[in-house]
């Protein structure tokens, strides 16, 4: 007898492998990109199956959504370029012998890793046991949020620095290098778009706020919420409601750094009331977490949106 749950898992795994395989081995870039976005959606389902709803939300919003939008952007540029001239050259493609050796090694690697991964423990390790016992009485209800904003808050803080660095890197490209004028089509405005956005805006704002608010007790949090808000911004950018500008206004710069800044200030200020950085005070810890998480949400949303926008700043555009 095969249980229906297992059948679903089996289908999901076959789907993941098939889609990932055809994505990375396909010829066209556009095709690969679309397949990769489907892969992201299947991963979101997988996380849900594996009792990781926080990851399912993050994967759907960031992994499939924003990465997909970024990839499509890059593909569009490449496609316009290819139209002008030559087909993709295969001059520097590796030879058959190399491919065969790589394939053989990869199969061996897959077999070895599969055996190793399966054989590893399923019981709690020392860190997991501590996280579980300490997490039970924690003032934050969602165990994942507890780890992200308390036990391993330092990782979360540094990860915000990674996000900011990616944006600074993009700023260098914008300021010091040139993109050819691709004659972008005027922002599309299908007839149903305006009413759709009118409905979508409050819904997505509400969902974003809900994710932020709920994150302390149930699945969700700054990342999921920030990614959703960024997606709303991407919609506005694509429809010309936000237009790129050549400077980052002070307000935008403030939003970009506010999360990391508040988090870092708290990390240092903790030395006033305790002997360890990043330690929450006895009182008002919950409000402090909410404040930091709100600032993180804003910074994440703004950074992801600006990474997509490919411009230094954004301004309100003409709406019809």
């Amino acid at each position: 007898m095969i249980e229906p749950g297992f059948l679903l898992d089996l289908l999901l795994c076959l789907g993941l492998l098939g889609i990932a395989g055809s994505a990375v081995l396909s010829r066209g870039q556009f095709r690969a990109t679309v397949l990769f976005m489907v892969f992201g959606l299947l991963m979101a389902l997988t996380w849900a199956r594996l009792q990781a709803p926080d990851l399912a939300l993050a994967e759907a919003a960031i992994g499939a959504g924003l990465t997909g939008a970024l990839l499509l952007n890059a593909c569009k540029a490449t496609y316009t370029r290819r139209q002008a001239g030559e087909a993709a050259s295969q001059d520097d493609a590796p030879g058959t012998v190399f491919r065969l050796v790589a394939a053989g090694l990869s199969i061996l690697l897959a077999a070895g890793l599969a055996w190793l991964m399966y054989s590893l423990t399923v019981a709690d390790g020392p860190a997991a046991a501590m996280a579980r016992s300490e997490g039970e009485s924690h003032f934050l209800g969602n165990p994942v949020t507890v780890v992200l904003l308390d036990f391993r808050a330092y990782d979360t803080l540094l990860e915000m620095a990674v996000l900011l660095l990616a944006l600074i890197g993009v700023h260098i490209l914008i300021r010091h290098y040139r993109l050819p004028d691709l004659h972008p089509p005027a922002p599309v405005s299908p007839p149903m778009l305006t009413p759709l956005l009118t409905v979508a805006t409050p819904l997505m704002l509400m969902a974003g706020l809900y994710l932020f608010w709920a994150g302390s007790q149930s699945p969700g949090g700054a990342f999921q919420s920030g990614a959703l808000l960024a997606a709303l911004g991407v919609l506005y950018r694509l429809t010309g409601r936000l237009v790129p500008t050549g400077t980052a206004s002070p307000g935008l710069r403030l939003i970009l750094v506010i999360g990391l800044a508040l988090f870092s200030l708290f990390a240092c200020a903790a030395l006033i009331w305790s002997s360890a950085p990043l330690q929450y005070p006895e009182t008002a810890a919950y409000s402090l977490v909410l404040l930091i998480e709100f600032a993180l949400t804003l910074s994440i949303a703004a950074t992801l949106l600006m990474l997509f926008s490919g411009s230094l700043g954004l301004a309100r555009g003409q709406t019809s």
């Binding site: 403030l254 800044a261 870092s264 950085p277």
Partner: peptide, 23 residues
């Protein structure tokens, strides 16, 4: 010995944010 490691990580970090913000 508590303060110095904190300063080594967060000193340049906060200064970076300030410089980015205030240009």
């Amino acid at each position: 010995s508590i303060l110095l490691p904190v300063l080594m990580v967060f000193g340049p970090l906060l200064l970076a944010l300030l410089v980015f913000l205030a240009q």
